[in-house]
Amino acid sequence: MDNILEIRNLRKDFGEFTLKDISFSLERGYVMGFIGPNGAGKSTTIKLIMNLIRRDAGEIKVFGLDNRKYELKVKERIGFVYDESHYYEELTINEMKRIIAPFYRQWDDNMFNRYIREFGLQPDKKIKNLSKGMKMKFSLAAALSHNADLIIMDEPTSGLDPVFRNEILDIMRDLLQDENKGVLFSTHITTDLDKVADYITFIHNGELVLTGSKESINEKYGIVKGSQELLDGDTRKEFLGIRETGFGFEALTGNVDRVRKLFADSVIIERPSLEDIMLYTVRGSANA
């Protein structure tokens, strides 16, 4: 299989926080949603991929190449978008572009100008006078204008309105008409991913909770609803997280088939959203 991104046993110890041996991979031609609550380690992982942080152990391969040994080759083909603008804000969009462009051998000015027009940005406007959404669009334009094969986005939609978030998703879909490209998209707004992501990787407290195709996750996971009496010491163990109310319980299972056999028709099983999976898992681990 042709992986555009491959991460194996990635570890980084900050003392107060440790990213613990994360592994996942992304095939060419797909979008991976990278989810987890704030502070889960998403940005740390992305910074490790971008070599902004030095890893303590593990392996990161982009386009099959080690991201440190082939740093230049790898970064030449990555487009990055971060949650905050780190541009020189006194500069105009065009001035900033003139700084970035010469670093990329494959920079395409026509493409950049097309995106700028499409996004409704004024090239002679100073970056500090742009709204958050506008800055994000500029970032995106820069990320998409050097024929990058892997687009890495760290919380690109946080703090943006739904209309603009949808625009970003559309751009990603456009991008994926080319089956050689891939997108890694970190977010805590999982509804964006219900629509566009092919694969999901979920981390929490620096640990990998799950990784796989959205289809397989949809098949394995389920929200189970039933009456209180069904819960006892043994059955509780079947669930990753349980929410009990005075009128019954709702719980997340990672093995729908087993639960169906166990409880038969005494429970209702629904398809969980990514948000359900995230909420139940995070709550479940907080109780444990």
Partner: peptide, 12 residues
């Protein structure tokens, strides 16, 4: 602007 984050993300 913590611009080193951008600079070190470029192929440099």
């Amino acid at each position: 602007y913590k611009s080193e984050i951008i600079i070190n993300s470029l192929p440099v």
